[in-house]
Design a protein around this nucleic acid. Sequence first.
DNA 1: TTGCGTGCAAAGGTTTTGCATGGCA
DNA 2: TGCCATGCAAAACCTTTGCACGCAA
Lengths: 139, 139
Amino acid sequence: MKKELGYNTAQKEKLIEFLIKNKDKHTSAQEIDTYLRSVGSPVGMATIYRQLERLVEAGTVRKFIIDGKSSACFQYVENEKECREHFHLKCLSCGKLIHLSCSRLMDISSHISQNHGFIIDPSQTVFYGRCADCAVSKE
Amino acid sequence: MKKELGYNTAQKEKLIEFLIKNKDKHTSAQEIDTYLRSVGSPVGMATIYRQLERLVEAGTVRKFIIDGKSSACFQYVENEKECREHFHLKCLSCGKLIHLSCSRLMDISSHISQNHGFIIDPSQTVFYGRCADCAVSKE
DNA sequence: TTGCGTGCAAAGGTTTTGCATGGCA
DNA sequence: TGCCATGCAAAACCTTTGCACGCAA
């Protein structure tokens, strides 16, 4: 766990515990609710959203909005600092999050910065598409 | 205009007219509604969504889901192929959305595809960062 | 005339907000 | 004790759907 903000409550603890356990995939507020309910520690949706909101703001959790999904997805971020130095690819099929450190991407970054005057923030940018596995099994 | 599907109705005509006029930017269903209403040719939201849906399906219009936006954005596609190579930059400070067609960006796509086995979907991908104006005034 | 397209209203689902209560520090 | 966090319910949003009517072809 990282930055400790606010109070430590049982609800918050359970929520973060779940997010960490599922850090390899994204989950919706609904799924979180279902899980917490299933383990006998139900947390109100309002609280779930409020906690997620602050976690996202703190950089502890990442929020994804994906076409085809009616709801947002959340995913725990292990090492925030490290994640500032590379880009992310997110598979729209399986939800896998790939961390990609590639010099070519950094080149593009500086190219856009120099030729288009736009400074890309890698920590906020996500490339959406299909990973190798899902590209094969097509859709 | 391209593929002609279904009936030609006044509503459909107005809607497409607006989309074409604003092909350089994204618009939400809400904005379309507001515009049509302002010019005295109101079209029900249901119809707007239904028309957009089929236009998207026909490839005439592109749908974008952007993080931070709760609603979808739509944009008329002049040349479908061209738009495959068209990425978006969104300024985190002022919210400006920049449409960038740059050969260097095409390169990234193919590079990532070839070397990392990941197929990027430009219609879902948005680069976040700071535009020239905001980078200067360093928010 | 035949159905497709439209509008209205209602339904659906997700996320946010107001307010009183309860718990952390 | 003083706030902050939670829960519940209601509200706010965005989008979809059902149904009857009107218009395009």
